[in-house]
Design a protein around this nucleic acid. Sequence first.
DNA 1: TAAATATACTTTGATAATCAAACTATATTA
DNA 2: TAATATAGTTTGATTATCAAAGTATATTTA
Lengths: 139, 139
Amino acid sequence: MKSTEDMLNHAMVEFYEKLSSWEQAVVKGKEVSLPQVHTVEILGGSGPMRMKELADKIGVTTGTLTVQIDKMVKSGLVIRKPNELDKRSILVELTEKGLEMFEEHDELHHQLTSELTVKFTQEERELLLNFLERVNAEF
Amino acid sequence: MKSTEDMLNHAMVEFYEKLSSWEQAVVKGKEVSLPQVHTVEILGGSGPMRMKELADKIGVTTGTLTVQIDKMVKSGLVIRKPNELDKRSILVELTEKGLEMFEEHDELHHQLTSELTVKFTQEERELLLNFLERVNAEF
DNA sequence: TAAATATACTTTGATAATCAAACTATATTA
DNA sequence: TAATATAGTTTGATTATCAAAGTATATTTA
């Protein structure tokens, strides 16, 4: 008999794997790459961010990110903004077009979330939200 | 005021992003690549699997997967097994060494899960497990 | 304060990952 | 049986990625 912790661990990994596959499938066939959507997703959720911080979140070096952001600037998704607080760094920010892409993508996530919790009562949804927020706070 | 659904959606995406960063950080500096760990994770969780199915889960073409599996066979993590039920396909299976890597990696996940739910009561953990299992079932 | 060290980002050159398309073999459908 | 579909591999070209070196600004240390 497996412990609750084992099963919880397994369920979390499974959820992650499935979301990962879903994300891959959603991006497939679009003109933007997965890392680019990932970037839009992060900037849309957290606002303008330094290169280093963004690179860490995505899991690439700043060298790699520089060329990726170059492309995204060229395609009009983001802009580089000087950071007055620390002139070594710069801030990457979504453009209007980037924000639109974020909102489109977020809408897909929203639909997915609805589908995944279609059999939940409103009370259960609120409880799940509470749990996830507490889990995220520990990260 | 945002709706519960909006917030739930946001919390799910945030959880996914954080787990994604964590995974990246855990693999960093190891001799295996992220896709390889991903493969080990999937095979460890679901057992032997056809190339096509595995490629879909990871989000790459079978061509890409063939060369990745070649490397993993060479490094002793997996083997190819004939599939008697359909001779066009083959099954990819973890070796003893691959299983060890899975268990090592799973232990890290286990630790993480413990940390993330450290402030949960046993009852809450069971409820979260129930929710996640229901969410996973809808996917 | 001045010098030394650290951090943020970019550039460059080499390596590795990825894809689409062509190819082989087996299954399924007409 | 013939035609079509599916699973996997190979190949050649493209793209992504990294490590290391270079530039500029901050921070620390002597």
